[in-house]
Nucleic acid binder design. Structure first.
Length: 384
DNA sequence: CATCGTGAGCAGAGGTGCGG
DNA sequence: CCGCACCTCTGCTCACGATG
């Protein structure tokens, strides 16, 4: 954006400033197939992936410019040499976490394959894989996890407290601001409780639309997403937790309208979208954004737990709680998180306390030994 | 003037399917 | 069952405007 200050010294070169040849190659990569010509490789990607790839190339171009390379004098594909690439990676690694660098390279190699399908990019893939193996996350999520029951309780507490404020008729007339604050807290409490029981991914969670994803059928409320709306391209079908049904009713009938009607500042340059039938709304009837959700969770979880529990971490918390409380039903967690394979649930989420794991291991071994002894004894008794 | 909420843009991951 | 190929998503920070 023209008016914005560059946040980094080496920001990605925007598409509009790419050399003509690069833009043509990218256009070709994005071309939709028709009956005569096959489409470009990138045409099938989701918009987020296209954006990422575009930025990856923009970053590369910006770096080349920084190195004094005259972009127009070289063909886009010919610019990508192993020597330059090595220097580029060295540059990327300065000041960026390993996983970030790996992410950039992953997009970069995807993009090369899409933009220059005639090239041989095996060396690039190899480089990416080598770095991938070494990369270790820098954030420690284990220390930030809390029991899922704690999250649920926090949600209920927030709703209960906010509910009493909303019940007080005098607040509505004398302290409109407090009433809006209570409505927000009620909404936050309901979101936290729902996330604790149904930890959807943020995009799906914030996208919940009344009548489309959230539907009443008989005495239950279902929550469903079509395959193309989910990250894994599989439909999600679940029911609204029974213990939150009354809260949902109250939210829809009383709380959401308060938020919709609340006055809010409007930046004339960025008029807000109307929320329509979106379930979670901010003040002034705008859909709650990822940033808004982050702020809400930061506010409440930091006060309650002493540290921030982000929305995605709710998933880890649930899986881990299930694993700790009821190790025999780990596949319950798999279904709750909508993972295709149990290994994903285990690999990514079940970071149970190692001491606990050790104890479990001892218990299991004791059980096995006991069973073995019993078998031996039974065999001895049955023997003639 | 603290608080709240916002979009933009970069940082830092999370996740699945498949083949060997 | 592991690692590769190929995606897709969330988190953080910032600047900003309005409100009580």
């Amino acid at each position: 954006m023209a008016g914005l200050p560059a946040r980094r010294e080496h920001a990605a070169l925007p598409l509009t400033q790419w050399p003509e040849q690069d833009r043509q190659a990218w256009d070709a990569a994005n071309r939709q197939p028709d009956f005569l010509v096959p489409g470009g490789h990138a045409a099938r990607w989701r918009p987020a992936s296209q954006r990422n790839a575009e930025r990856a190339h923009g970053r590369w171009l910006a770096w080349l410019l920084e190195q004094g390379v005259a972009l127009a004098n070289e063909a886009p594909m010919a610019r990508i040499t192993p020597e330059r690439f090595t220097a580029y990676v060295a540059f990327l690694r300065k000041g960026r976490a390993p996983c970030t660098v790996v992410g950039y390279l992953s997009w970069f190699s995807m993009l090369c394959k899409a933009m220059f399908p005639e090239g041989d990019w095996r060396w690039l893939h190899q480089a990416h894989n080598n770095l991938q193996r070494e990369a270790r996350p820098t954030r420690d999520k284990r220390s930030r996890m809390v029991p899922a029951q704690g999250l649920l309780q926090l949600g209920h507490e927030l709703m209960e407290h906010a509910g009493t404020v909303l019940d007080d008729a005098s607040v509505a007339t004398t302290q409109p601001r407090q009433r809006v604050a209570a409505a927000r807290d009620f909404r936050d409490g309901l979101m936290i409780a729902l996330l604790a029981l149904r930890p959807l991914r943020v995009t799906n969670f914030l996208g919940i639309t009344i009548g489309r994803h959230l539907r009443r059928s008989g005495d239950r409320v279902t929550l469903s997403f079509a395959g193309e709306e989910t990250k894994t391209k599989r439909p999600i079908e679940t029911i609204w937790p029974e213990e939150l049904l009354l809260s949902l009713d109250r939210y829809l009938a009383e709380v959401r309208p308060i938020l919709m009607a609340a006055k809010v500042s409007v930046d004339p340059a960025r008029p807000p979208r109307p929320a329509g039938a979106i379930l979670w709304v901010g003040q002034g009837g705008t859909p709650l954004t990822p940033g808004g959700l982050t702020k809400a969770l930061q506010r409440h979880t930091t006060r309650h737990f002493g540290h921030y529990v982000n929305a995605h971490l709710f998933r880890d918390c649930l899986a881990t709680t299930v694993a700790n409380e009821d190790p025999d039903h780990v596949h319950m967690a798999q279904h709750m998180l909508h993972h295709t394979k149990l290994s994903t649930t285990e690999r990514s989420y079940i970071l149970t306390d190692s001491r606990l794991a050790l104890r479990r291991h001892h218990d299991l071994m004791a059980k096995l030994r006991k069973a073995a002894r019993q078998r031996l004894r039974a065999r001895a008794e049955n023997a003639p």
